[in-house]
Design a protein around this nucleic acid. Structure first.
Length: 408
DNA sequence: TCTGGGGTCCTAGGACCC
DNA sequence: TCTGGGGTCCTAGGACCC
């Protein structure tokens, strides 16, 4: 093997973390995602019952009362992920932290006379299983795409090695939609060319691929043939580019005031995340999602970077009438803060702006402190009230910051 | 898979310029 | 104000991922 890439995938990772923390759950059907109302991860026992990702929690409880459904705890899973990356880094520093439960490792050049790539990969797997008390599935192949497909091939506790000469046989069994980077839309268009498996694609001549496919799919074609295009990106570009907050509400509604309130709540949520990371946004987007899953979007150009939720909401209100269509049923809204830059690096054009911002910073730092002591959403913009009420009927009283309109 | 939430990247085409 | 050709920048939205 010229290059040796390992893809490492935690099996039912969130559920495995819960079981590692609470051994009483071992051997039982465990599902995470209670708070979202859908399953986000399952233990093997739960999977065997037929429970899958995205399955509604109420349905699970009705069909399988014996299943234990727990709230997700992303902070904890993040800590387990760090331990996973650190273990893999004992073998090579070329580790890409791809997601909270997956990583790639480039072990090219590490083989020795009595130590094959397969030995190294197996040793990674055994160390992870032993030290974290949960199972992982690994794929070893000459490229990232093949390694990724390979790790999924046998699950859980899988170990799949694909030598270059074995690639065609392996790809014969893989549906085109199973390939990393090829989703439903591309699958459909490839079907029209008679391409149904990964091998069908890999066997097309370069010329045909160049003429008929977009660049990302040409790259996948190379990777499927064992020619590396994607590198393992170990230096993680830490700076996040955007963050968002969205929420679906049931039932869908045409009510303008309520939709605005949902937006307000999402603005608070997103702004809170920005504050906690010390970031300000140079661009704001928001959308209304209709019952037919169409998006009505708007981008707001900003003169100066913003972070305070009431100021962001001010901007949204100015354009809302151009987006909202009376009589249309909406099911969700979302707010994206993009062009994120560290707060202290964002300069303002006017001295007055700076002073004003500092004032709001103090206000919302206080809000954060209160929320830490008394719970999230203790203090909220008045404009978010209807959205917050619709969700949790809290018995205790809220402190409310009235909407301040065009502040000057 | 009757559809929850949080991200990234690519690209066609418009605006603008010479 | 008749009008070729080409470059860059930007953004809306599609597609995909976990």
């Amino acid at each position: 093997m010229k290059r040796a890439i390992v893809h490492i995938d935690g099996d039912g990772f969130f559920a495995s973390c819960e079981i590692a923390l609470n051994p009483k759950l071992k051997g039982k059907p465990v599902v995470t995602g209670q708070e979202r109302g859908i399953a986000t991860a399952m233990s093997p026992e739960a999977k065997r019952l037929g429970i899958h990702r995205g399955m509604p929690v109420y349905q699970i409880k009705k069909l399988y009362p014996e299943v234990i459904v727990v709230n997700s705890n992303y902070h904890t899973y993040g800590m387990f992920a760090q331990r996973m990356y650190d273990i893999v880094r004992r073998f090579t520093d070329r580790v890409e932290e791809y997601s909270i439960d997956e990583c790639f490792a480039d072990i090219t050049g590490l083989e020795r006379e009595n130590l094959s790539y397969e030995d190294i990969a197996r040793s990674i797997k055994e160390t992870l299983n032993r030290e974290l008390g949960m199972t992982f599935s690994l794929g070893l192949a000459p490229t990232k795409v093949v390694a990724k497909v390979a790790s999924k091939y046998q699950k859980p506790d899988g170990f799949t090695v694909i030598e270059p000469s074995e690639i065609p046989d392996f790809l014969r069994d893989i549906q085109i939609g199973q390939v990393w980077g090829i989703g439903p839309a591309t699958s459909l268009s490839l079907y029209k060319y008679g391409i149904k498996t990964a091998l069908d694609l890999a066997e097309r001549p370069l010329r045909w691929v160049d003429e008929n496919l977009a660049r990302p799919h040409v790259e996948i074609w190379h990777e499927l043939r064992g020619t590396p295009v994607y590198g393992v990106r170990s230096e993680h570009e830490d700076d996040q580019k955007s963050l968002q907050a969205t929420r679906t509400f049931t039932p869908p509604t045409t009510d303008e005031a309520h939709i605005l309130s949902e937006l307000s709540r999402n603005v608070e949520h997103a702004a809170g995340k920005a504050r906690s990371h010390g970031l300000v946004a140079k661009r704001i987007y928001y959308f209304l999602k209709t019952q037919e899953f169409r998006y009505h979007r708007m981008e707001i150009p900003l003169a100066a970077a913003l972070q305070a939720p009431n100021e962001i909401l001010n901007e949204i209100r100015k354009t809302f009438d151009a987006v909202y269509q009376p009589g249309v049923l909406y099911r969700a809204t979302g707010v994206t803060l993009a062009g994120l830059v560290p707060q202290n690096m964002a300069q303002s054009d006017l001295f007055g702006e700076v002073v004003k911002k500092q004032k709001w910073n103090e206000v919302f730092n206080t809000v954060d402190n209160i929320d830490r002591r008394y719970g999230t959403h203790t203090v909220t913009l008045a404009s978010s009230l209807s959205a917050n009420r619709a969700r949790h009927q809290r018995p205790h009283k809220h402190l409310i910051i009235p909407f301040m309109g065009e502040t000057e």
